[in-house]
Each structure stands twice: as C-alpha cells, then as structure tokens.
C-alpha cells in the first residue's frame, strides 16, 4: 500500500508544473492568471497566436525536427561503431580517452560558443543546419559512446565467437548478433540524443539568426522578448505544449519498440 502511495506522491510532484502548463495554454489571454484547476472557458486563443503567420513557429518546428533527427541518426551510427570497438578491444590509454572525452563534454557550454562562433564564421557555416547539427553531434557523442560501451561490455564474448564459428564475418557478427542484442541500449541512447538536441538552445541561438532556419526553442524564447512588458505567458505555454509533443511521441514509440525487442 505504501508503495502505491509513494508512486502517487512522485506522480503528483512531477505532474503539477506540467499540468499547469497545459491548463494555462487553454486559458483565454484575459484570465491567464486564474487559479482555477480547469480553464473556464476553454479557449484556443493561445494556439491561434502561436501559429499566426508572422510567428514562424510552424517552420521552426520543422527545423527542429530536421536538426534533431539528423543529429540522432548520425550520432547513433558513429557512436555505436566506436562503442563496439571500445568495449571489445583492450588497448592502452582507453580509460584515459574515455575520461578525457567525458570531462571535456562537461565544459561550460556558454564558453565553447566563443571559439565555435569564430570557427563557423571563418568557414561560412553561419545560418546553416550543419552549424547546429555538427556541434550537437559532438556534444551527444560522449554520452552515446559511454552508454553503449557499457551495454556492449555486458554481452558475453562467446556470442561473437559462436557467430564467427557459424561462418559470420566480424562485421556480420556485429550487425546480426550484437546490434539486435544491444537494441534496448541503442533506443535509450537515441532518446537521450534526440532530447538533448531538440532542447539545445545556446548553439542554435548563436549560430543562426535567419528566422527561417531557427529551431523551436529559440523561437519560443524570442517571442518572449518581442513583447517585453506584456509577457505572452499563454503563448509560451501553448508553444511549450507543442514542443513537447514530438518528444513524448518519440519516447512512447521507442519504449514500445524496446519492450518488444
């Protein structure tokens, strides 16, 4: 019984702020500061405002999908290969490399922006997708490698040896035997990479100032700035709900897929 009570308590702790966002997004602008648990009356005013043509929010959602999708796919491909080699081979200095990679990936992001901006200005990447994708990949890779290395290490060595005795090449053993077994780990890592990129803000806001290339998180922050004295709280909340939907659907599909695997 205490177990169920504990779970409900945790659920509430997590629910309240989010619930407030959804409810607020359905209030009219006039009664945005109401305290009633449900909007009265319900209204789509905030959603209309978000999708008004001059907001460019729809376009920014597409941009976010392009950036986060590409980053996740390429990061997983590169990261899985690296993690497999790191997990299966003993070589000197491996732990040092891993430690260095993790420590560097923790470097305060706000400061990395200064050199990256100079670099991208030099090579003409400002206002391009790759200026957001490539740094996001390098930020997501350390964790991807780290996680997947842990997963591959747990799988017994006998698996590949059996596969190879059965006539698989090293690559086929990796693709046909190891990869399916690591699928839960790969899915978890995919979610992590997708979320991190989807929510990325500092790089996106620095490298891109052309509105047609901006990602959703940057757009949201900017329509706060647009109306400085009248914070568009309802519009923000509606945009927040919309930005969350791809993340939720992504997580649901991944967890469904991984529970089948």
């Amino acid at each position: 019984m205490w177990r169920r009570a504990g779970m409900i308590g945790i659920a509430l702790y997590c629910l309240v702020p989010f619930y407030w966002m959804v409810v607020s997004s359905f209030r009219r602008t006039a009664d945005i500061h109401d305290k009633s648990p449900l909007p009265a009356p319900w209204s789509l005013e905030s959603y209309d405002a978000v999708f008004a043509a001059d907001m460019g929010f729809g376009r920014s959602l597409v941009n976010s999908l392009v950036v986060a999708g590409t980053t996740t796919a390429v990061t997983l491909l590169i990261g899985t290969m690296a993690a497999y080699a790191l997990a299966r081979l003993a070589f000197r200095g491996k732990n040092v490399i891993l430690a260095l990679v993790i420590a560097v990936s923790m470097f305060p992001g706000a400061l990395l922006i200064v050199p990256l901006l100079e670099l991208f200005t030099t090579i003409g990447w400002i206002n391009t997708y790759q200026a957001m994708i490539v740094p996001s990949m390098s930020f997501a890779l350390p964790l991807t490698i780290w996680n997947l290395t842990t997963f591959f290490r747990q799988l017994p060595y006998e698996l590949e040896q059996a596969a190879m005795i059965d006539g698989c090449t090293a690559f086929a053993a990796f693709r046909r035997v190891m990869l399916p077994l690591a699928a839960p780990g790969v899915f978890t890592t995919a979610i992590l990479a997708f979320i991190a990129t989807w929510n990325e803000f500092i790089i996106a806001v620095t490298m891109v100032n052309d509105q047609s290339r901006q990602t959703a998180t940057v757009r949201i922050a900017q329509f706060t700035g647009a109306a400085k004295f009248d914070t568009p709280f309802g519009t923000q909340m509606a945009a927040g709900v919309l930005v969350t939907i791809p993340l939720v659907s992504r997580c649901c599909s991944s967890s469904a897929a991984s529970s089948q695997g």
Partner: peptide, 16 residues
Amino acid sequence: LVILAWILPSAVVSFL
C-alpha cells in the same frame, strides 16, 4: 511524468 519533466526544454521549464 518523470520523463516529461526531463524532456521539456529549459526555456519552457523555467517559465513553469
């Protein structure tokens, strides 16, 4: 719910 709290963008979460 736990995952939801984690995947929201910081910009949105801080308003909340």
